[in-house]
Amino acid sequence: MTFPLAVAQTEITTDPRANGAAVRAAIREAADRGARLVQFSEGALTGYAGPAKEHFRGWSIDWNPVTEELRRVMALAAELRVWVVLGGNHRLSGGHRPHNSLWVIDDRGEMADRYDKRLLSYREITGFYTPGDHVCVFEVDGYRFGCLICIEVNFPELWMEQAALDVDCVLFSTYSEDPIFETIVRGHAATNGLWAAIAVPASCAPAGPSALVGPHGYVLHQARPDGPDVLRADLDRTDPALDTALTRARPWRKKSRTGDVYTPHRVTDPRSTDRTVT
């Protein structure tokens, strides 16, 4: 069974209402094209803190339009019967800095979960955000999805964690213009045997557009590099090109990591124990 996925590459402004309209338009397009889940970039609804969100300074952000637009997105998800993974700043209480999050909205329009970025940059941890403390994995139609955000691409342990949790596809959302991110994602996908969907804003697409990377580490589909787009693709476990990655490499590496497979093959041999012998 294949899974119809969409990755939305939208314009992001400092106005949640404008962002919300762009998000809903992308969801409608994705649903019209048969998608069951639509992924958006980091900050897609609210904008990203700092330079991309000037009114964030002084914690004077108006959360009312954020809440209103989020509820409209949830209502549309229910109407169209699609899952939505949407990036944005999640408000905390008591003057605490917000989380940098991905809201996971199910096809009933309910908040199924939320991923809060755990490993933040120095600038984020000292000036913008509160770090999260949990992994987020959820299942749709027999496929397991996990979430990671931006600089978390640089931490292999987070990607190995996804594989250990039997994730099929990592939804990687970022607001970065660094083209090396795609290269790193491809490496994680290949070494862990999983799909990785990369969602970036339209403004970052010239440096590296949104994409779907296969479990073999190769880019399967890319969005356009010069504007908004909705990438629509299928996750297909029966694709012959992915057979080695999915049915051989990934299971073998999982088995290898336990070490048990090698124990019966080790020997007692002086030429093995003496590492100075020629």
Rank of each mutant, 00 (worst) to 15 (best):
P240E: 11
S173I: 10
L120C: 02
D106Y: 04
E139H: 05
S203F: 11
V277T: 12
D243M: 11
T258F: 08
W83Y: 01
E182Q: 14
G227I: 04
F128M: 06
G259E: 05
D269N: 14
V85T: 14
P240Q: 10
R186L: 03
E68D: 07
C150Y: 05
A77S: 09
L148V: 05
N192F: 06
A233T: 15
Y143D: 10
K254C: 10
W59S: 15
L171V: 08
V104K: 11
R118W: 02
D166N: 15
C150D: 07
L171D: 01
G58V: 08
K255D: 11
E124N: 04
A49L: 03
V230S: 05
G259W: 02
P179S: 07
R271W: 13
D62Q: 08
I198K: 13
S176V: 06
L242R: 06
Y143R: 15
D226R: 03
T263A: 14
G20N: 07
F172P: 09
V82P: 09
H90E: 12
Y129D: 05
V277Q: 02
L231R: 05
V135C: 10
F145T: 00
L231D: 04
A78F: 12
A205E: 01
T67E: 10
P228V: 09
P225V: 03
Y143F: 09
D274I: 07
W83F: 01
L102I: 10
T130Q: 03
A78Y: 11
